[in-house]
Design a protein around this nucleic acid. Sequence first.
DNA 1: TTGCAAACTTACTTAGTAGTAAGTATATTT
DNA 2: AAATATACTTACTACTAAGTAAGTTTGCAA
Lengths: 186, 186
Amino acid sequence: MSITREKIIELGEDLIRTKGYNAFSYQDISSELGIKNAAIHYYFPSKENLGTSIVKTNIQRFEEMTDNMRSRGFDEWHQLETFIKIYTKSHREQKRCIVGSLGPDIPSLSDNTVSELKRMSNIILEWLTNTLATGREKGIFAFKEDPQIKALLILSSLIASLQLARLIDKIEYKSFCNAILEDLRI
Amino acid sequence: MSITREKIIELGEDLIRTKGYNAFSYQDISSELGIKNAAIHYYFPSKENLGTSIVKTNIQRFEEMTDNMRSRGFDEWHQLETFIKIYTKSHREQKRCIVGSLGPDIPSLSDNTVSELKRMSNIILEWLTNTLATGREKGIFAFKEDPQIKALLILSSLIASLQLARLIDKIEYKSFCNAILEDLRI
DNA sequence: TTGCAAACTTACTTAGTAGTAAGTATATTT
DNA sequence: AAATATACTTACTACTAAGTAAGTTTGCAA
C-alpha cells in the first residue's frame, strides 16, 4: 500500500476526531502533507471514500485488539480495563473516538459511510455486551441490569465524557473511568 | 420581541440539533421561513450571534424549568425523572440536545458561543450534582460514587445515548432511561 | 529504447458559504 | 404632513469547498 495513502487516512482520522467531518477539508490534509489537493482525490475520489476508509481502518484495528486479547487469554476484567484505556488515551490526546466524532454528522455522511459506522458501533457494542455477560457468569463482574443495557450505559458514558471534557475543565477523567470499573466490582 | 427573530432561533436550534452547526446554513433557515438570507443577518449579523443566542435561550429555559420544579416542591426523585424526560422527548423527536450537538463543533465555534456553551454545561452539571447529593442525604437516592462523578456519568449517558440511537436501532430507549433511574433506587 | 502505468501537479469548474451595501415598503413618532 | 425607525429585499462580494480533466515526472518492464 502507498505511504501517502496511509498518511492521508491517518491525518484524516485525526482531523475527524479533533475538528469533525464537516469542519475539515482536503486543504487541511494537502497542506499538512505537502501535496496538492488533487493528490488526495487520486486516492479518494470523493470525501465519502475517505470517510468510509477511515471507519473501515478503525473497525479492523478494534477487531485486531479484541482478537489479540482473547488469544492472549485476558480475563474479562482485564479486557474491559484495556478497552477503557483507549478512551483515557484519547482524553489525554484531546481527541474523541471515531463513533463519537462521526455520529453527530450522520445527516451529512454518505450511505456507505453511515453503514460502516453502524457496523462499527454494533461490533463494539456486541463485544462489550458479550464481555459483560461472560464476565458476570464467571463471577468477575456484578451488575443487575441487562448486559446490553449495561453495555450501552458504559459505552455512552465513555463516548460523551470525551466530549464533555472540552466543556467542563474540572473533570477528573481517571476517577471517572475508575468509577465505571468500580461499579462492576463484586 | 420580533416574531421572525423568534422563528429564526427556534428553527436554528432545530437545525443544530438535527444536522449540526457546521452542516446548516442561513439558506436552510431563509428558505424554510420564506424570507431572504439577508433578513437573518439583520437579526444576527453573523452565525456566531445566532449560535450564542440559541445557547442563551436554552440556558434560560433550563433555569426556568429547575426554578419551577423547586417552587412546586418536587422531591429529588421527581426532579430527576422530569429532567430525564427531556431526553426521552428528544429521542422521540430524533433530536440531540444542544450540548451534545454543539460540543463536537467547538473548534469551529466562536469564543462567545463556546463560553456560553461551557456555562450551560456547568449549570446543568451543577444542578444534577446538587440534586443527587441532596437526594442522597434525604435518603431518596442510593449510590456510592462522589455526586459529581455520578452526575457526570448520568449526563454522559443521556447525551451520548441520543447519538447512539441513530447508530444502533435496537436501542430500547425507555429501558435505558429506566436503568439510570433504577440504579439510584434504595 | 520505447511503452506504460503509478503517482502525482497544474489549472480549472461548479456550487455553496457567510457576509455586506444600498435600497424600499410600512408603521410609528413628532 | 414630515421625519424616522423597523423590517426587511435586491443584488452583490469574497471566499472556500469538493471535484475534474489534462498534462508531467518517474520507475519499471518488454
